[in-house]
Design a binder for these strands. Structure first.
Lengths: 188, 188
DNA sequence: GATAACATGAACCGGATCTTCCGGTTCCGG
DNA sequence: CCGGAACCGGAAGATCCGGTTCATGTTATC
């Protein structure tokens, strides 16, 4: 493969990643090409059609995410901390794209499998956090996964988003309800 | 206006309200007509084009919302309670539609004004709740409005949604983090 | 410098939706 | 009950929009 071709392929992937992350999965091929500083034709030279490009990017993203997640899950830290780090890690990833691919009927098998793995790992972390008492216990772990995906699978989600912060706080196990009014207490 | 025409108009509005609420603002005119049990032609007899229908429904929805909000704000209850009741009240309303209309450039003036009023009232409630100490203070009221709109302006949002619950919990002022260890305090 | 690989973007295509239109139907006053 | 005006239906036409192709011009490599 010629050097310029390789460079252009990289440009395309970068631009597409960026656009998918900030604008959602409905960006047109022309926008992507323009953002990469190339013509549409070039884009089609490297990816036979839109689906191929989407799959490539979604799969790459999910693979990266999965490996990060495995690292987090392997550490001996509290599960809650792992969840928070994970959510922070997700910011700026084109997850809305992956979500779209998965929600649609007949997702490409690789993407479906990767998503399954990711969701499974998150669910396990959630369960563990619940056992550790740091995550509210009134939600099935699956529901927690869905919630987090809302926080994370938005075009333009940022790690320190108000929404992300609020959702994480809302997911914390309630700190013991303060003492009754009028009571005198000693905190040990 | 003939009786059947009036009836059909009502059928259309009902069906459209329902579809906009559950499927988002991108429903096709044919789907709406089908849901109303009528032909597309009939739909176009009553509303000159898609925009007219959208505006009508969005404006109706916002008007209802605004009046409910005024009632809530007028009551002497705590502002936090009003906010929660408001959010519950929003479930099943086609607010995603209104949001789309407002987000787009050049929204119809009536819709824009209504939305402005609604947002303003919510922001005032949020501010009041912060003064009362029931709503976390580290977010500008405007941000709170945006957050709540995420909770509420989803196709198919339900009042007892996990997401809605979690967001509301995350918005609560943190129950005192607990005084420093070893301190003795009296709770009045 | 020759050649094959590559880039370009205007033109083409498909399908999805909005909108029109006219034959058929339904209501309503006389 | 009847006539006609208002109304309904849904196929056909217009329009839009993005994906894809391809003939032409350019560039890396040997």
């Amino acid at each position: 493969m010629r050097a310029d071709a390789r460079r252009n392929r990289a440009l395309i992937l970068d631009a597409a990643l960026d656009l998918f992350a900030t604008c959602g999965p409905a960006v047109s091929m022309e926008e992507i090409a323009r953002a990469a500083g190339l013509g549409v034709g070039t884009l089609y030279r490297h990816f036979p059609d839109r689906q191929a490009l989407q799959e490539q990017i979604a799969a790459d993203t999910l693979r990266r995410l999965l490996s990060a997640l495995r690292d987090l899950a392997a550490r001996p830290a509290p599960a809650w901390e792992a969840l928070v780090l994970f959510v922070r890690h997700c910011a700026g990833l084109p997850l809305a794209l992956a979500k779209t691919l998965v929600d649609d009927a007949s997702p490409p098998p690789e993407v479906a499998e990767l998503t399954g793995d990711v969701n499974g790992l998150i669910a396990r972390l959630a369960e563990q956090a619940q056992r550790e008492g740091s995550l509210r216990a009134d939600l099935p772990p699956r529901e927690v996964v869905d919630l987090l995906s809302v926080a994370v699978c938005r075009p333009g989600a940022r790690a320190d988003d108000a929404l992300t912060t609020v959702i994480l706080d809302g997911l914390k196990a309630p700190t013991a309800v303060g003492p009754a009014r009028g009571a005198a207490v000693t905190v040990d």
